[in-house]
Every structure is written in C-alpha cells, then in structure tokens.
Design a protein around this nucleic acid. Structure first.
Lengths: 153, 153
DNA sequence: GATTATAATATTGTTTACAATCGAATTGAA
DNA sequence: TTCAATTCGATTGTAAACAATATTATAATC
C-alpha cells in the first residue's frame, strides 16, 4: 500500500485551512467590530479606542511611565509615543521625564483629562447593551480571552 | 434623602471604567497577540496575517470578487485594494474586472498562490499548539466570539 | 432614452501597530 | 572606576484599517 497523506494535492480541501475552522479569525474580526461599536460613543468625547484604553489606565493610576502603560495595554513605545503626544496636544495628559531615572517618561492626567472620566462613565454600559451575552457567558468569554492572552504573550 | 449617584465625583473609582472590568480589552489585546503568534510562521511563507486570511478564503473558493472577499473577511475596499495589489505584485493572485459586471473585480489564485497552500498546511496545528485550551474550551470561545461578531456587525 | 439612484472599487487622509534601530541613561562586571 | 550590557523612549519604515470621497458602471424610474 502506498502512503497517501490526506490533502497531499495542492488543490484539495484542507480542513485545517478553512476560514470557518480558525479560532483566530473570529477573534480578529470580533475585536475590530467591537472597537467599531465604540466609535460613535468615543467620537462624542473626542477619543479613539486606543486613547480610551490609555485613559482608563490613567484614570485608575494617575501617573504611569510609558513602560508601565505599555505593559498594561500590550503596546510598545512605537505606538504609545505618538499616541501620548497627541493626547498631550489635546490637553489630556502631561509627559515629563522622571527625575529619579531620566530614561523614563511619566504620564499624568491633567484636570481636563481627569474630568473626561465623567463623560466616559456610561460608555461601558452602553456597549454592554449591544452585546447579547448573559453575565455568565460574558464571564466565560472574559476568562477564555485572558487565558489566550497570557499564553500568547 | 438626597439622591447620591455612585461615582459622582470625577476622582472617584468607577468600576465600569476599570480596564480589568472591560470585555473589549482582552478581546482587543488577545487578537493582537494571537496575530503576533502567526508572524514567525507567516514570515516563512512571505505573508502577513491579513494576506493569510485572504489566501484562506481564496484557497476555499478559487475566485471571489473584492466585495465577497470583504464580506467574508469583514474588510472594506480601502483595506483590500492595496492588499490585493501587493499580492498581485507577489504573483499570488490575479485581479480582473468581471466581464458580466465591469464594476466588480474578480480575484483568482495563480498557480503559485494555489501552491502556497501546501506550505501553509501546518500553520493551524502549529498555532493550536501554542494555545492552551481544550477542544471544548476552544469550541466555547469560538461560539461566543461568533455571537459577538454577528451582533456587532 | 434621459435622468436619477445605487453599487462596486479606488483613492485620500488619519490613526494604529509593530519590527528594527538609535541615543541617552543606568546598571553591572571586571 | 571604566567599559560593557541593559533599559527606556523615540524614530523610521511598513502594513493595516477605516471614514469619507470620487469614479465608473449598472439599475431603476420617469
């Protein structure tokens, strides 16, 4: 008997390569679509999605270095530096070299940045209303996503 | 009694705005990290992640219009047109105006594009090995992601 | 058939995102 | 201490991603 591997010819169906069999694809697509859901709400307060998650980190911890922000948001300085410069130009944050370590830049909220929190307060609930998952399902999804995230890191 | 809404002051903690309470954030971060997992494998065959999912759609359906491709991948012409032009320059696909309807552009695989499937064949299994979820968990995640995706659309 | 509306791509402009590299500051080791 | 290694951020270059608009082709309406 000749060895005949499955899918050995280039034109054959290969189950593993069907889009509908990928876990990565709904992850990628759902991420983009959910970010799009935020857009009308974020437009109202003048933030992009990436700026919004940066603001959330800062609302929680008034001062963070670029490095700490990058660790929390899974973003590097190539993304954060121009992002934070724009936010500084908008008057939301201040960037200042640390006195203790001149290599690091400390990002802090301005009063205006702090105040924006009030206008953002209802966004999570508004988005939640667009996503038809029960609390249990949302928790399950949350846990599975964090497991994937930590494994992929 | 005076009405006293929770989190009414700008500096107070607002549970809803904590990064760790967002479902969108692990979705966004996990998506990026998983795409990053693909990079070493995709580098070997000269594709980006977006090109890879476009190729998967084409491996499955030899010819697709830009519109159909966009519907399957959740991408618009502003993303696809330059992407497909690059893939055409690489010799992976052909773009041709439809004879039946001159408005639409039909994308087809070249022999080289078809042949690339062989070299991509093991990527899904390799990635699967990096994601520590049981089959049941992966299925659960898959279903929840598709529900979010379809609701957000 | 002329006019209007709609549909499918393409283009433009803006914002992310990240790899790779650089420069300056700090740390470590000899 | 002095030189090497590391760290942090900024910069550069490339590739998405998408809104808004433009362009051309088809469909619909009169």
């Amino acid at each position: 008997m000749t060895k005949k591997p499955i899918d050995s010819d280039a034109s054959g169906i290969c189950e593993g390569l069907l889009l509908k069999n990928q876990l990565c694809f709904p992850l990628y697509a759902a991420s983009k679509e959910v970010v799009r859901l935020y857009k009308p709400f974020l437009d109202e307060i003048g933030l992009t999605y990436t700026q919004y998650i940066a603001m959330m980190a800062l609302w929680e911890s008034r001062a963070l270095s670029v490095k700490e922000l990058g660790e929390r948001l899974y973003l590097d300085s190539g993304t954060l530096t121009p992002l934070l410069k724009k936010m500084e130009a908008q008057g939301l944050v201040l960037r200042k070299r640390s006195a203790a370590d001149e290599r690091s830049v400390i990002v802090t909220l301005t009063d205006q940045g702090e105040a924006l929190k009030q206008r953002a307060k209802n966004i999570p609930a508004n988005i939640g209303g667009c996503i038809p998952l029960s609390r249990d399902e949302a928790n399950t999804l949350y846990d599975l996503l964090y497991r994937v995230l930590k494994a992929a890191r």
